[in-house]
Every structure is written in C-alpha cells, then in structure tokens.
Amino acid sequence: MNRAPYHRKDIEFLYALGSLAVTSIQNAELVEERIARQRLEEELRMAREIQRNLLPASIPKIPGLEVATLALPSREVGGDYFDIVSITKDRTLFMIADVTGKGAPAALLMSSIHACTHVMLPMDLTLQEAIERTNSVLYENTAADKFITAFAAIYYPDRSLSFVNAGHEAPLLIRANGEVEHLEDGGPLLGIIPSVPYFPGYITLAPDDFIVLFTDGVTEAMGEAMEEYTEQRLLDLLTANSSCSPAALIELVQNDIENFTGPVAALSDDRTLIILKATET
C-alpha cells in the first residue's frame, strides 16, 4: 500500500463520505419508522372503524322512553361498549360495559362482549342466564389480568325493567320526586370467576323518572387540580336539571366535565353515558 501521508483534502473527503454514510443510515431508519408508524395508524384506523360498526348506528324508538347516548374514546380505539337492541316489540335491551385497559387490546375484548350479546339475543334466555353464560365464555377466553364490568337491563312496555349489574358503576335511578337509587343487584365482574350466579333486580319507572348509565371515564375524569370529577358532582348536576331531556342532560354533563378538566389533548379514559327517561306515552 502507499504509505504516503494523507493530505488535508483526503481527510476532508473521508470525513464527508463518513457523514454521508451516517446520514443515509439515519434516513433509512427514519423511513422505516415512518412506514411502521403509518402501518400502525392504518391498523388503528381500521380497528376504530370496526369498533364504530359494533356500536348501535341509531337508537330504536321505544314507546314511553326517551333515550340519549354519548361515547367518546380516549385513544384511537377504546374499551367502553354500549348497546341498545330491540329484542322483540315488547323487550328492549340496554347494555353498557367497560373493559380493563385502553387501545386495541381493550377493543378486542369489547368485540367479545358484542359477540356474546348478539349471539344470545335470539336464544330464549333470561337476562340472568345470558349474563352467566357471557361470564363463562369470557372466563374461558380471557387472560387472567383482564376483566369486564357490565350492566344490562331489559325494558318492558309497562315501564318495568329487569337488570343485572356485573361489577359495574351502579347506574343512578333518579325519581321525579328527587329520590335516588343505585342499581346494584347482580354479581361480580365478568371473566374472573367461573360458574358464578348473578341475581337480577327489578324496578318500575314513573313518568319523568330517569336512569343514568355511565363508565368510570365520566366520574373519574381528572381536573387540573388532580381531583376526580366524582359521582356526587354528576348527581348534583343531574338532580339540579332533572326537567331537561336526556339529550340536554348529556350536553350539560359533557360541558361540565370539560369545564372541570380544562383543555386536554386526549381523554384520560373512555367516556360513555346513556340516559333513559320515562315519558307519559
């Protein structure tokens, strides 16, 4: 080899060549990262589209009942679930559920709840039996660290409801006279204990009574002072505006939560709310 010393131009050339090689490698890595990110974004977009299709596209008309809903995911894909289904002309199912975690894994569990619900709708099962079978299916097919809270109710034309609460935040029954009841009858969380019995509850609504179903993304919304919104604040707002329609109540709650939390780039948890109000006819 030529043992002649490197000249300054040689060193500058080698330095430039090395810098070019480093830049090329960095650019290649950035391209790979961008492709991976785009692929993930596309997968999440498709997952969200699937999730959106699992939720009811419209609310069936139910004589004697006015209904409004709110469903806001915390990420591209959420783990909250709700459904409103006319089983027969005399029976309407209301269901709300909250899956542990967020994102795609939670959405997959949410799809399991949807599948169980709709597979069992045509079967001649009581609400209690349907929840018990759902629990067994989820227990057999869900990881030990995953579980689901759920509340399901069937509404009848005489304004009566049967319901089962599977470890979910107890819905609020607010009577027209201001009395408040928590709908707690049922059993434990879904998917953690096999072959566990669930015990239904029963109520009858009078005109202007209303029921509020919600997930913890409502009551545990975090304010700027790192304090939770709380069920008591929700209840105070609802009772103070009990003459409003369900749609107006949901708008009031959403605005109050936003005022409480201040501006946020993304929700800290999925937020789902259903309000049912009994009417004269």
Rank of each mutant, 00 (worst) to 15 (best):
I274P: 06
L234D: 13
S162Y: 10
Y198T: 05
L190G: 01
L267D: 11
L127G: 06
R75C: 10
R175H: 15
S24F: 11
E33V: 14
L109F: 01
R52Q: 15
M123H: 08
A225R: 07
S19D: 12
D83W: 00
D209P: 01
F147M: 00
F163A: 03
L161F: 12
H168G: 11
Y139E: 02
E169W: 14
L55N: 11
T279A: 03
A130G: 12
F260Q: 00
A47P: 15
P200Q: 08
A144H: 07
N259E: 14
E132Q: 00
I35H: 14
A104Q: 10
V164T: 02
A4T: 08
E231C: 04
A36I: 13
G217Y: 07
K277Q: 13
A21H: 10
A166D: 03
L205K: 01
F94V: 12
A71P: 09
F210V: 11
A225G: 04
T88S: 13
G101S: 02
N241S: 02
N255C: 01
R52T: 07
T69K: 01
F163Y: 13
Y202A: 06
L14E: 10
S74G: 00
A176W: 01
Y155R: 14
P246A: 05
T23M: 09
A206Q: 13
Y202P: 06
M123Y: 13
I174R: 04
Q128E: 15
A115G: 00
A266S: 02
